[in-house]
């Protein structure tokens, strides 16, 4: 034992749950990840008190960087109020006692699953992604021993062949999320299962991006302002999904929308996936085409009710 370790009492956990030795190990992996943008650093992921696949990688990264004066936002599917976001936020409230928020601009650390907030992130913010399968080549070649060689030799032909086969078969690339990117012109990287709509946001982002895959035991990073290019072809340039309607609640355009089914007769509306963004717009007086719809009232009302219940710390 070194002087920096102290045994835990029963039922009492260290700040942010992880012991200091584990944090140091993860911190060193983060530094190497930053030094080699897009390269997946193996780390001795720990068993967490939540299942593998439910954000243990992101949680370990957040626990290792989090400090007492941080303000944490946790989102899943763009929303602060989805079940797993609630559970993870609660975990850090309990184990670290840090301030939490729903407001993107107030957060110093944002842990996310499947989305990037619509609002541009700043230099003083860090975004932590939960990653299920960090290896972008995994579905083309399941063996780690092989994919590691491909990354080492920068052999990404297989990926281009796959994308091109899509085009030959369908006329377009049939990958809609976890769309592979090339980081700093060297490593092909999986941006986690965010919709490809969010890919442009990770290019030259002002905030530091950290990616944690707990079950697969990998950490990777993209430093601020790093060039991140979505893979494409000259004759088939990368393009994002476009919605032909604005958000039904706040009228926002050029944002990612969730499709909400209103009844069993085909009634549906589209609303912002980023719940904080939508709310801020509505508070500023923006109204969407369906804002007066009774269903919309429930959706919007529920959200703002929850907002007022935001834990005060």
């Amino acid at each position: 034992m070194t002087a920096q370790q102290k045994p835990l009492d029963e039922g009492e956990y260290n700040f942010a749950y992880l012991d200091e030795q584990t944090k140091r190990m993860i911190r060193r992996a983060i530094l190497k990840g930053i030094a080699v943008p897009g390269y997946q650093v193996p780390f001795a992921s720990r068993e967490m008190p939540m299942p593998y696949g439910w954000g243990t990688g992101g949680v370990q990264v957040t626990a290792s960087i989090l400090g007492a004066d941080d303000c944490l936002k946790v989102i899943d599917q763009g929303s602060d109020d989805t079940t797993n976001a609630v559970a993870i936020r609660g975990f850090f409230e309990k184990t670290a006692g840090v301030e939490t928020t729903f407001e993107t601009s107030k957060a110093s650390i944002i842990q996310t699953r499947h989305r990037i907030p619509e609002k541009d992130l700043r230099e003083d913010q860090i975004i932590v992604f939960q990653v299920p399968i960090p290896e972008p080549l995994r579905f083309l070649e399941p063996r780690e021993t092989e994919t590691r060689k491909m990354h080492a030799l920068e052999e990404y032909g297989l990926m281009h062949v796959k994308l091109y086969e899509d085009i030959a078969k369908n006329g377009h690339i049939a990958t809609t999320y976890a769309y592979p990117v090339l980081v700093n012109n060297r490593y092909v990287m999986d941006p986690s299962p965010t919709p490809k709509f969010d890919n442009p946001k990770i290019d030259k982002m002002a905030a530091l991006q950290l990616y944690g895959a707990g079950r697969e035991k990998r950490i990777y990073a993209i430093p601020p302002y790093t060039e991140v290019k979505s893979l494409d072809f000259e004759d088939y340039p990368f393009e994002v999904q476009k919605f032909d309607k604005p958000c039904g609640l706040c009228g926002a355009e050029n944002v990612y929308l969730d499709e909400v089914i209103l009844d069993d007769k085909g009634g549906r509306m589209f609303v912002c996936s980023d719940s904080d963004y939508c709310e801020e717009r509505r508070e500023a007086g923006h109204l969407g085409p369906m804002a007066a719809d009774p269903n919309a009232m429930t959706l919007a009302g529920g959200t703002s009710d929850q907002h007022s219940e935001e834990p005060a710390r």
Partner: peptide, 29 residues
């Protein structure tokens, strides 16, 4: 089995953002 059950069972988590992306593609196709 701790890893396996976690990943199999994580499919219970909401995936509607990705599903939305797939919906759009399948409709278009």
């Amino acid at each position: 089995n701790i890893q396996a059950t976690g990943f199999v069972e994580h499919l219970k988590l909401p995936h509607y953002v990705d599903f939305q992306a797939e919906l759009e593609l399948v409709r278009r196709m």
